[in-house]
């Protein structure tokens, strides 16, 4: 197992995380919430294993990308808030999230829950996109 490359650990991290998130969405309710926590734990554990297998060049790329890409992704997310909060964009997403968070017995979630979740995911996605842009840029400029 320890002979796995950093890339292998990263692939395992991503596949497991999204599989568990998909399962959480299907299961819903309290059980779905715990599966979502498990997805987070899975991602953290396998990302740590990937990090330990990376060489210093790749670690430098990731540090740079999280600092600057994450920062600019966060700022871009905030700057785009007036656009993404237009009813035509946000209402369908909130509707889908409300349906996803509805318990199996049909009881709806607290009205604030989908909005908070959407806000958190939106910021995280913004930082992830910023990270990826910087990460690609790092590798292109260091060739």
């Amino acid at each position: 197992m320890s002979r796995f490359s950093a890339r292998s650990w990263r692939i395992l991290a991503a596949l497991g995380f999204w599989a568990l998130i998909a399962l959480a969405i299907i299961v819903r309710g309290t059980a779905g919430l715990f599966i979502a926590y498990a997805a987070g734990a899975w991602l953290a554990a396998f990302s740590l294993l990937a990090w330990k297998r990376q060489d210093e060049f790749e670690r430098a790329a990731q540090k740079f990308s999280w600092v600057f890409g994450g920062l600019f992704g966060l700022l871009a997310s905030l700057a785009l808030l007036p656009v993404v909060t237009q009813p035509g964009i946000i209402s369908p997403l909130l509707g889908w999230l409300t349906a996803s968070l509805t318990a199996p017995d049909g009881s709806p979630p607290d009205p604030a829950a989908p909005a908070i979740l959407l806000g958190a995911v939106y910021i995280a996605l913004g930082q992830l996109v910023g990270f990826l842009v910087c990460w690609v840029g790092w590798h292109v400029t260091k060739r």
Binding site: D55, E56, F57, E58, H139, T141, K142, R143
Partner: peptide
């Protein structure tokens, strides 16, 4: 060196300065 080929390429081209241990 137990590093990636990309690392060697970047160091050779002066695009990346290795740490003291490396």
């Amino acid at each position: 060196l137990d590093v990636s080929r990309n690392s060697v390429n970047a160091i050779e081209n002066g695009k990346y300065d290795p740490s003291l241990p490396l």
